[in-house]
Design a protein around this nucleic acid. Sequence first.
RNA 1: UGGGGUGUCGACAAGCGGUAAGUCACAAGAUUUUGGAUCUUGCAUUCGCAGGUUCGAAUCCUGCCACCCCAGCCA
Length: 563
Amino acid sequence: MGSEDSASTNFIKAIIDEDIKNGKNGGRVHTRFPPEPNGYLHIGHAKAICVNFGIAEEYGGLCNLRFDDTNPVKEDVEYVDSIIEDIHWLGFDWGDRLYYSSDYFEQLYDYAVRLIKDGKAYVCDLSPEEIREYRGTLTEPGKDSPYRNRSVEENLDLFERMRNGEFPDGSRVLRAKIDMKSGNLNMRDPAIYRIKHASHHRTGDAWCIYPMYDFTHCLSDSIEGITHSLCSLEFEDHRPLYDWFIDQLDVHHPQQIEFARLNLSYTILSKRKLIQLVDEGYVDGWDDPRMPTLSGLRRRGYTPESIRNFLDRIGVAKRESTVDVALLEYHIREELNRTAQRVMAVLRPLKVIIDNYPEDQVEELEAVNNPEDENAGVRVVPFSRELYIEKTDFLEDPPKKFFRLAPGREVRLKHAYFIKCESVVKDENTGEIIELHCTYDPDSRGGTSPDGRKVKGTLQWVSVPHALNAEVRLYEHLLTKEDPLNLEEGKTFIDYINPNSLEILKDCKLEQSLKSAKPLDRFQFMRHGYFCVDPDTTDEKIIFNRTVSLKDTWAKMQKKGNA
RNA sequence: UGGGGUGUCGACAAGCGGUAAGUCACAAGAUUUUGGAUCUUGCAUUCGCAGGUUCGAAUCCUGCCACCCCAGCCA
């Protein structure tokens, strides 16, 4: 039912509502997501994806996927493939409307020729350095290029020869003839075509001149009949240029609306910096579970739904902001709490021997799979005389608020029995606790005692002879800096990389039922958090990634006490 | 002495002249065979600042301040 009776709204929808009311575009809503295939998608892109596909969906319109592939030296099919996979994974589809700006190269060339014929564009022989000098500065106007008033015939001839490959890279560009004195630098005769003798991932060597983004982007939107071109804030002062191209050419005019991109606390969301993390080996690749890429989040155990819910929740506005990453974590917990099967795992094992339990006995105890989902059913877990419990669940000299096991204390083993700690065995040399001897109360099977006695703590456990060995990878924020956009003088984000962002535990003990878990399956390890099977898992070695921990009020209390 | 934007709770974010929604975070309590989940309660006399208009302003006007983006033949 009403998934959003809160009537979530934003300024873009307000504009579209108005457009529809006024009959603009015949009431049609058609958006697009236009990535450049030069890197992997991250959660910031996911915001743009959800905004574009989401709005189209909400208004019964369409959203295209179009690769803005106008710079062959940076682009690659590897990125095209990953982008397609990631958007599908997020849950969106563009039907047969998968486009490439490079599909429009011929059309774009014709548009450029029209501008030349109309005296609105010219071939300029200035070097890149000279063009920069002629452009002026933020506060001083630029000056006209000496080539600005070439004849239409000469421009046409030169532009054709550019296309024919007669000139080397960088020797000439085609420029729009607008206004070198404009306060908006984008309007100071911007380049619209440059020479690049490079092969393109789709058009091969068919071209040696390539249109610039500003020229390509707005006209590609126009060609596709896009009604609302949603993009990020930094393109606001490109809008007058887009409007200029479209007006000169007198073609369909999409309306560009700019919104703020996503920033996340403790997180880097800049393609350039993510590339640096990968290239310089701070992470293990684009899909490292610490990366905010969609492939990284997927491997970490995030679900598409949780990401979409998160993005819905934060809204869309023009104000630049940094969202607390805790909100993202809230959304994955919220979903996994409803859907993930509970399972018992001991990450840092401590052996417990139940002295009064028959030596060769094994009991099959019933365990509820998910108390939040009555349809999730039950499973059976084996119980025996020797068990593993969590090291952190025992303290020889516990503080008053400690509800777990300690000498003489009784706790409940989840789904099993009450046990009481009778003695502690230590390594003679190191003093390290090696094992605990306990007794159990046979009448407490299932976790309650007929005499009505209560225990404060409930621990998860794994039977020693039935335990599955596993490697578990614990992740924390990649950065120690909450606001990575606001660094101290002279520091870079590299200075804030969290040395503890990955902790690998190699001697973890899991309950038997996990034997059949498949890569990317998600579970709640009771009292720990949500975990996901890593694709590196093999028959010999099972590996889990921690998606997010459970909220831990005990840890919070301790932290407060110590601080 | 350029142009374009933005300023509402710790973090997001509604609000569009009628007297500050919601979410996360945080805090307190209840409950609990996960110190999880759940449930209750609390959390902006105030909307960047200063004036003005009005019976009434976060919303309108004026001035100021702060922050972000732009000088690629990148996107």
